[in-house]
Design a protein around this nucleic acid. Structure first.
Lengths: 186, 186, 186, 186
DNA sequence: GATGAATGAGAATTCATTCAT
DNA sequence: GATGAATGAATTCTCATTCAT
């Protein structure tokens, strides 16, 4: 990616998350990115294309953090905890991207095409857990509920440590995971 | 409340939730409410005051749904389930209000004054559970984490049944509560 | 019509004719009309609607000038001369409107709907001459060629007296009509 | 002329005629011509210089079509008909150039310098008819009126056959010329 | 109370032109 | 000569808000 294109994405991420899509003007984005307004429209046909490309980019970042895990020799709980921790850590370390994803995952500005494209990638990654889910020591809940429950747990955990940063430590992190695990395990 | 004032609040609730604050013009609100633009500004000093009063109003509605419960003679789990169910049912039946609360609870347009005023009321209502929490068969988690965990559970449950309405039935509702309960109980 | 609406039409007529559609900014129109830019868009949904309403309005003005003539008792030549003179006089006295019609009659900004609506009215008015044309001392040319020839004669006459205003007098006007008449008569 | 320069002129001719000067962007012209935007500005200092050189070029094309005629031995009517036919044929065969000339002959983008330069050339060519006009079987109209009348006849004839292409044949072409001739002849 | 015409600052987007490669 | 990324002023249009009726 070109340098200026990246700068525009970075600026948009920050501003869209802080002030919302309509609340952020393209002039502000360009200024923050250190480019001319015309340059923004050189790389992105419209403000809508910008937010869609940004959504794709942030979800791809999240995917990168969680892929390549799941060791069949380890107990399922450990594998799941690693996934859960990856997600929570992403939420805390890359909080701009995480907040952006949360805020815009049901925004009318993100087209269904964008959502489909990235959702397909995500499902590929989670497929491996689906198998574990069925065979292991997990409650007889259907996959979708379990995944929504997992994501809900991640979101509320990240939210929580965002509100009370002084509580963020290994112990409380374990505690939060146990809340989730004890809910979902038999 | 005057009839036109109420119509404006109803129209705002619908439009703000669907299109966001900046995405909704006062002209559209007035048109949807069936009043003139001038009338909107007669009842609400500004668009910002409108959304703040709306936020207060929707959170009050939520409070109404959950207050006056908690019977000391019943087991704590049952009391908690009633609270959880009230919240989930509110989320499903009054989905506009619920979505509005979720969407705008961290919006920059809601002043901290508005948030404080309603948060105080909410805390009063939840106080009674705080006591139960400490004495009962609940994990040794601190109150804030438990409450965030509860709210997270409600949100993901409502989201889930919003996505898969065909799965919404008493059995799956119980299932979803058990996920939560088994997480939080000792 | 409202006063400001009329002022906007007047300003547009002048500016569009002088500088063309794209060459005239809505800001200039508003300024010339003595209204705010917002007011322009209050009365006209878009710049395109403005030019279409203006086209309709100018052609209606032209129609007003030529209707209600054609006396069956007079010789056809006299009736035709009256029509021809009405058109030429309109072109000279209302030169802004006339120039506007000429300039924009095949502009892509005027929709076919607009053209149809006004063309129907025009045809009604000219119908009476169609009859005369067929029965009278006119060459065996088909109606459309005759009408295009008439209009062409009017346009070149108006253009001519626009270029050489000092030549504009009753004598030369008669001369110009005879050029036309001798061409079309048997 | 360089190949790319010619391609740019061709593209401009098409686009300016279809969409007007302001309605055509230099980027579109470059794209249509198959060159980079920078290349356009290499050959033409500015968009205004481009349209002026284009105007000169199209009027030169027209001149080429009509020059080298006027045979003193033939009757004047025949010479004039040849001129008239040359102009009409140019208008029908090179309709882009003809339309361009019509559209932009009174455009503010064409400088008076450009107009003068080409007008001088044109007058040279028409001079020979001026003589014929005075001595021949023509009405006592002054030269300018006659020339404007001629041009008006050409324009309305071309317009007419553009509107009704199915009427374009030798017979109707003669008919149209007779309209003109009978008008102008004694 | 209720109306909606009027305002003008601010929004997204376009575009002629430049210039480093 | 040829390219196209970069610029920023200018354009069309929107919109919260006011105020005379």
């Amino acid at each position: 990616m070109k340098e200026k294109e990246q700068k525009i994405l970075d600026a948009s991420l920050k501003l869209f998350t802080e002030r919302g899509f309509q609340g952020t003007s393209t002039a502000e984005i360009a200024k923050t990115a250190g480019v001319a307004t015309g340059t923004l429209f050189h790389y992105f046909k419209s403000k809508e294309e910008l937010i869609n490309r940004l959504y794709f980019y942030t979800k791809e970042s999240l995917l990168t953090e969680i892929s390549a895990h799941c060791d069949d020799k380890k107990p399922f709980k450990e594998n799941l905890k690693e996934l859960w921790l990856d997600l929570v850590n992403f939420g805390i370390n890359d909080s701009n991207k995480f907040q952006f994803i949360i805020t815009f995952h049901c925004s009318p500005y993100i087209t269904s095409l964008t959502k489909e494209e990235i959702e397909n990638k995500l499902e590929g990654t989670l497929e491996v857990y689906k198998k574990g889910l069925k065979e292991q020591e997990i409650k007889e809940v259907y996959f979708e509920l379990a995944m929504d429950y997992l994501w809900g747990s991640v979101v509320s955990t990240v939210d929580h440590f965002g509100k009370y940063p002084e509580k963020f430590n290994a112990h409380n992190l374990d505690l939060a995971f146990e809340l989730f695990w004890d809910g979902i395990s038999k």
